[in-house]
Design a protein around this nucleic acid. Sequence first.
DNA 1: TGTTACATGTAAGCAGTTACATGATTTT
DNA 2: AAAATCATGTAACTGCTTACATGTAACA
Lengths: 208, 208
Amino acid sequence: MAWGGPGGAATGPLTLSLKHAILGVLEASPMTGYDLKRFFDGSAEWLWSAKHSQIYPLLASLEAEGLVSSEEGVRGEFQRRVVHSLTEAGRAELLSWVGSVHPQPGERDPFLLQAVFFDMVGDEEVRRVLTAYRDEQREAYEAARAHSLALAAGETPLIKERLRVRPEESGRMRSMKARAFAARAEVARVRWQWAEEYLADLTGDPTS
Amino acid sequence: MAWGGPGGAATGPLTLSLKHAILGVLEASPMTGYDLKRFFDGSAEWLWSAKHSQIYPLLASLEAEGLVSSEEGVRGEFQRRVVHSLTEAGRAELLSWVGSVHPQPGERDPFLLQAVFFDMVGDEEVRRVLTAYRDEQREAYEAARAHSLALAAGETPLIKERLRVRPEESGRMRSMKARAFAARAEVARVRWQWAEEYLADLTGDPTS
DNA sequence: TGTTACATGTAAGCAGTTACATGATTTT
DNA sequence: AAAATCATGTAACTGCTTACATGTAACA
């Protein structure tokens, strides 16, 4: 394994998702911390996101680990900006993470926790909460579906950048990236339809 | 609102899921911290879970808020055990939480983050990771489905306890609790089938 | 007699959010 | 001239996990 970096043992089974989210985005193109933040916020809340207050310190520690390199520059005359790029070691770490099986942390859905106690309140309240949930999931479905189609068509900024660098893998890249968002869309769709059915049964069969 | 408890402002939009998970379980029956821990661990990783190191301090703060009352007792001759019950204020807080709409925190699925980078590695690695995911989701589906059916039949320990206290609501309670786990099962099912389809396309159409 | 289950806590650390803090550049 | 955007950080706090710490009671 050769884990000779300074700063400790790396013993526990951490998740480290943000770390790899950043490495993965930087793989497409070098960026500043601010660019990363904007990317996470755009694309209808991407697959991972973080506040800048978490991104900047993490970028510093990734540089200390040798996974990214940082180059100071300026914007205009005086404004400092630091552009971060993936190093070879960073690329290796990313590929190793993507290619291995990781244990999934058990799902924790606050809404389902709420739903399991629905019997304690009246049908009216349940209907209100379910309606809001259904609308939310329908919107999530539409956003994920739209993004999936955009990726399949190669129409997002980041995929354009990657296609510029590696045009030979176009089809595989686009379909694989699209599939990730298709999964998210399918999940939102079943949740939306579950809520719809629930609502139909409530109104059709008042208080049972 | 009358938020006069000692210890601070309660300003931010927190999630507070564990708090309400505990209140909800205590609503069915008074319990010790150890009982709560076992309940969370059982039922195939319930809808929420926590380590005892989080439960005990939280129970203390819930008591300070007046939402639960605690009674010291013994097991055998010398072993201390503290039984926690829901107070009227706790029940009111729970019902208010269950009956209102709460903003869902944006989904963060580490697996989808991994999947969006699948194009960076070879088909063989993708197949390995997808296979593990498919098996995991299939098992999650089966566990949630089984639990949903058990709830519908009124066969779980906690629902038996609740039915003993409130037999008049039997049908509504069982079907609503079953529906929550049915939602979880449906989500696991679409994930499992998504992975299955992905795998089929990979083997059928090598490297595209 | 040894192992498992019961039972309750504290301490240290990681991941993430909110708030604090500052300043340059571009657009309106 | 004012507002929005670009840009980078630190501090404090919440939620959760891992590790530390201790002891009783039941069971094989």
